[in-house]
């Protein structure tokens, strides 16, 4: 009976050890999957941001303003800068 006791103690100990190690490996896999997803999402986000910055480039903005909105470029003397706003 004593041996059965030792056996059970070993069993519990070994089970904990195995579950820890397997947990590490499994979460490692999950982490790397998540990292992958994060990387993809970041890349997508970056693409969108780059698209924004492409669209907001001076050239695009000027072109749009002049062609679609019929705006004209201001001459510097027409600009009024209020005190303290600059």
């Amino acid at each position: 009976m004593k041996y059965v006791g030792w056996l059970l103690i070993f069993f519990v100990f070994a089970f904990i050890m195995i579950s820890i190690h397997i947990g590490i490996a499994r979460s490692g896999r999950v982490i790397s999957q998540l990292q992958n997803e994060v990387a993809i999402k970041e890349a997508r986000n970056q693409y969108e941001e780059l698209e924004i910055s492409r669209l907001s480039s001076p050239q695009e903005v000027t072109q749009f303003a002049e062609q679609n909105l019929g705006m004209v470029e201001v001459k510097p003397h027409q600009v009024i800068v209020l005190e303290g706003t600059k």
């Binding site: 069993f11 070994a14 089970f15 195995i18 579950s19 190690h21 397997i22 490996a25 499994r26």
Partner: peptide
Amino acid sequence: GLLFTYSASAF
């Protein structure tokens, strides 16, 4: 056997 079945398959 249970321990090793667990270890070998739980991943």
